[in-house]
Nucleic acid binder design. Sequence first.
DNA 1: CTTTAATAGTTGCAATCGTAACTATCGATT
DNA 2: AATCGATAGTTACGATTGCAACTATTAAAG
Lengths: 155, 155
Amino acid sequence: MAVDGFELNAFLPYRLNRAAEFVAVRFAAEYKARYQLTRPEWRTLAALGSSTHAMTATDVGTHSAMHKTKVSRAVSGLEERRWLKRSEDQDDRRLEHLELTKAGRTAYRELTNLASAYQAQLHDLIGVGGMKALSAGLEAIERAIDKAEKRPSRT
Amino acid sequence: MAVDGFELNAFLPYRLNRAAEFVAVRFAAEYKARYQLTRPEWRTLAALGSSTHAMTATDVGTHSAMHKTKVSRAVSGLEERRWLKRSEDQDDRRLEHLELTKAGRTAYRELTNLASAYQAQLHDLIGVGGMKALSAGLEAIERAIDKAEKRPSRT
DNA sequence: CTTTAATAGTTGCAATCGTAACTATCGATT
DNA sequence: AATCGATAGTTACGATTGCAACTATTAAAG
């Protein structure tokens, strides 16, 4: 269709962004309405809530692909709500370990109910096949991300 | 792994956003450095450049999943560079048809070279299988988006 | 040890964003 | 044809963002 060899509809960053935005907007509207949570806050809550052990802010950033200042502010926000508490690392006092409080875990559980319901809607929308393919494709990217995180890069 | 039934690593909005962000950041750095282009500007340029006919601002917005104010500003930016020209619709004067100028098409061609090179890198990074799966999955979402666009929704 | 480089996290500030309100125009209803 | 509701696009303004610079701390190099 294009004169030269480039096909925008096959260009991954464009397609991914479009899909991610489409899918995120509706869900964000839900938790924003119910909890006045911002996107970075939800993503931080999710990262912490899904982890069995405490994480540092940097961990949250790499796990969610968020800029460190975004994480920093989200952490402050969640702390003000008393959904999260920080604790200094004894060996390395630059680090702070982040953990959800009881209230935070409760909120997380409620949010995951919303999330599950939304995931089910998406499932209906794109079908089992689409879901499986997407999952496999995202896994491939996630492997690449992990690989890239060993050899560092500024985010 | 999670206590309840929710698995963040299987939650589509989170995964998509993460992947999209990872993939977009590196590419954005390239065209920002070479052309001082913002992301919305690149996306608008891309939408127009890949289309055979003129588009309205609304078209650009739905095609790229960008908010209309973002599109509006990106259009102004591209117009100032003289990469894009507007023309009023004769039948409906609310509409303006957007087209790239010669300079705009040239820029688009240069940008698509960058894009192709980047796409090749991604291809290497995630492999043929990952690429195919991802493509199939994204297609499923894109179909869903098109469907959703018939029955409207505020973006 | 002392100096230097690297890392974790925060913050000031300018740039960007999205909501809501606005202008202008069109189509439908009466 | 006057009114009302919808749509295209813009803009004012408060909120959010990311860059760069900063503090504090640790690791590495000499």
